[in-house]
Each structure stands twice: as structure tokens, then as C-alpha cells.
């Protein structure tokens, strides 16, 4: 399992691995939205929680199809399926690797982008907390979508169509945490619900994703 994690990280960081593209996309969203909406600080402060969460979500979406598609094309997935590691474990490790190279960096740079969008002071802590609690769900739900579409050529668009509706609860609770945090209100209810969705997705979706991969390999 560790070997798989290290390999996926190594592949992501080497040339052509696509690491950083998600971050760059996130930055672009944070730059483009004020250009479109206008520079008024009050307006930006109001929409910052939502924009940051939608931006993080879309940035996450960008690299989802790489989770399994590359391994499917070069035959690694066949070999992993016959290896001693259970396929559920493969899914979990790959989703974790995806989170380490997208969700975690997004969480870390989000406060900087919060400055660009004039996020109110108390919101920063909750921005980081909500992304930390919610982005693992984005990765594991995305891994499920990637597992469903792994056998389909040019399945990227379909993957988005399948995954985005599944992201709705995470997005709602995540943005709600930041919104309430920025307004200085109580955040524990949405934060706990967000963490609950993440925990449930982490517990159950690797099984569904592994089942989908088995179907796609046969």
C-alpha cells in the first residue's frame, strides 16, 4: 500500500504529472471572479466563501480522470487487480494520493486567495477547517466517479456530469461553514455534517468504486 502511495505521488510530481495545475486553476478562479463581478470589497466579501469552495471543487475535478485512467490504459490496473492488495485498498490509497496532491495544497493556499477575495477576518480559520474536512470527500467521491468511467474513452465530461451532483452536499455544508464563520456565527452544525459526509464517503465509497473497477476490467 505504501509503495502504491509513493508511486502515485512520484508520478504526480514528475514532469507531466499535472501537479500544480489544480492550484493554478484555483488561483485563476480567484482572479477571474473579481474581474467579472467588480472590485467592490463588500460584494467580494459576501461571495468569497462560495467562490472559494466552488473554485476548490472545480480544481479538484480537473485531475480526477487521472486517478484510474492512466493505470487502466497502460495495464497497471489489471496487474494491481491481480496483486495481493485488495482493490478497495487500491481505491482508498489512490484517493488519498489524489487528496495529497490536490485537496491538501488547495486547503493550504485557500487563505491567500481569501485575501484576494476580501474574505472577512474570522472566516480564514473556518475556510481552512472546512476545506480540510471536506476535500477528502471530494477526492473519494471523485475516485468513485473515475472508477465508473474508467473504461470510457474521453470520459472526462461524463465524469464531471456524474460527480458534480454528488458534490452538492459537500459544497453546501462546506461553503456554509465559511459563510457562518466569516459572519462570526456558530459553525459547529455544518462543520460536523460536512465531516460526517466525508467520514461516510471514506468508509463506503471505496467498496462501490472497487466494484465499478471490477466491472470495467472484465
Amino acid at each position: 500500500m505504501r509503495a502504491l502511495l509513493l508511486r502515485d505521488l512520484r508520478l504526480a510530481f514528475r514532469a507531466g504529472g499535472g501537479f500544480g495545475l489544480g492550484l493554478a486553476f484555483f488561483l485563476l478562479v480567484a482572479v477571474l471572479v473579481p474581474l467579472g463581478v467588480g472590485p467592490e470589497p463588500a460584494t467580494l466579501a459576501k461571495i468569497a466563501p462560495g467562490i472559494l469552495w466552488v473554485g476548490a471543487l472545480l480544481a479538484c475535478l480537473l485531475s480526477l480522470d487521472r486517478i484510474f485512467a492512466l493505470d487502466f490504459e497502460d495495464g497497471s490496473l489489471d496487474l494491481l487487480a491481480t496483486s495481493p492488495i485488495p482493490l478497495e485498498g487500491v481505491v482508498a490509497v489512490k484517493a488519498f494520493a489524489h487528496w495529497l496532491v490536490t485537496g491538501l495544497p488547495l486547503t493550504l493556499v485557500a487563505p491567500v486567495l481569501g485575501v484576494l477575495l476580501n474574505l472577512p477576518g474570522p472566516g480564514y480559520l473556518w475556510l481552512v477547517a472546512s476545506l480540510a474536512a471536506g476535500t477528502p470527500a471530494l477526492s473519494v467521491i471523485g475516485a468513485f466517479g473515475a472508477a465508473l468511467t474508467v473504461g470510457i474513452k474521453r470520459g472526462g465530461l461524463l465524469l464531471s456530469l456524474l460527480v458534480l451532483p454528488l458534490y452538492v452536499p459537500t459544497l453546501i455544508f462546506g461553503a456554509e461553514v465559511v459563510k457562518r464563520g466569516a459572519a462570526g456565527a456558530e459553525v459547529s452544525v455544518p462543520l460536523l455534517l460536512l465531516a460526517g459526509i466525508t467520514a461516510g464517503a471514506l468508509a463506503l465509497l471505496p467498496f462501490a468504486a472497487a466494484a465499478a473497477i471490477r466491472v470495467n476490467l472484465r
Binding site: 468513485f144 451532483p165 452538492v168 452536499p169 456554509e176 465499478a212 466491472v215
Partner: peptide, 28 residues
């Protein structure tokens, strides 16, 4: 048969998330 299996799995997972979305939206 592959399509039937994959869509069935999607339907199951989707059902859970559809219910979650329903309550999330109510909350929102």
C-alpha cells in the same frame, strides 16, 4: 451488462447522495 452494472452502482450511490442533497438544501 457492463452498463447495467455500472448504472446500478451509480443509482445506489446516487440515491444516498440525493437524499443527502435534499437535506443539505433544506439546511441551506
Amino acid at each position: 451488462d457492463t452498463a447495467a452494472d455500472l448504472t446500478a452502482v451509480l443509482c445506489m450511490v446516487g440515491s444516498v447522495f440525493a437524499v443527502l442533497s435534499r437535506y443539505a438544501v433544506k439546511f441551506w
